[in-house]
Amino acid sequence: MSAVLNLWKQTTQLPVVGSLVGKRVFSLAFAQKAPYFATIRPRFTELRPNYAELLIPKRRGVHNHIGTVHAIALCNGLEAAMGALAEVTIPADKRWIPKGMDVAYTAKADSDIRCIAETDPEQWTGDDPDLPVRVRGVRADGEVVIEGVIRLWVTPKKR
């Protein structure tokens, strides 16, 4: 089991603090690993192989000039979700690095935003190093505000 998945399971299954507090503890720890993620204050809600979901709270610190969640904050949330997914999904003998992101902004982000990253299990078993991760951001009313693909470069670990 990956270190990130192990941390998720440990923090979300703490009997004394419960799942909600455990998810907050995980989110804080994850954001410390890559400090830029802390700027959006991600709140992970679900994490398992091939799926990651977090919430970006709508607050002044992530607003743009019209008071909605800034496009780059949305991209930061999508990349955080993708990174967590990659860490809990990648086979132990492989490594990954982001290669590019293609997104479309489809609606105003005027609420908290759920950032979701998804892959299919067979994507991680092939020999093609180019691995697309589907990403999207969803408003509180269910409207998709951003969607696209983050491409990873997945290669065998050097021995």
Rank of each mutant, 00 (worst) to 15 (best):
M1A: 14
N6Y: 07
N6A: 12
W8N: 00
W8Q: 01
Q10C: 09
T11E: 07
T12N: 03
Q13E: 09
Q13C: 05
L14G: 05
P15Y: 09
G18Q: 04
S19D: 11
S19H: 13
S19F: 11
V21Y: 13
G22M: 07
G22N: 08
K23T: 13
V25Q: 05
F26P: 00
F26W: 04
S27E: 13
L28H: 08
L28W: 10
A29D: 06
F30W: 14
A31H: 13
K33V: 09
A34V: 15
P35G: 13
P35S: 13
Y36G: 07
A38K: 03
T39D: 13
R41V: 12
R41H: 15
R43M: 12
T45D: 06
E46N: 14
E46R: 14
E46G: 12
L47W: 01
R48G: 03
R48P: 05
N50H: 15
A52P: 04
L55E: 04
I56Y: 03
R60P: 12
R60G: 12
R60K: 10
G61S: 11
V62C: 04
N64L: 07
I66M: 08
G67Q: 10
V69Y: 00
A71E: 04
I72A: 06
L74Q: 06
E79P: 01
A86H: 02
E87I: 09
V88T: 03
A92N: 15
K94S: 11
K94H: 14
R95C: 03
W96N: 12
P98H: 14
K99Y: 13
M101R: 07
V103P: 03
V103K: 04
A104D: 07
Y105D: 08
Y105V: 06
Y105P: 04
T106I: 08
A109Q: 01
D110K: 06
D112P: 01
I113S: 00
C115D: 06
T119L: 11
E122D: 15
W124E: 06
P129K: 10
P129R: 10
D130E: 11
P132G: 05
V135I: 07
G137E: 01
R139F: 01
R139T: 02
R139A: 00
A140R: 06
D141R: 00
G142L: 05
E143P: 01
E143Q: 02
V144T: 07
V145D: 00
I146M: 05
V149G: 08
I150L: 15
L152V: 14
L152I: 14
L152S: 14
W153G: 11
W153A: 12
V154S: 06
V154R: 04
V154D: 06
P156N: 13
P156E: 12
R159E: 15
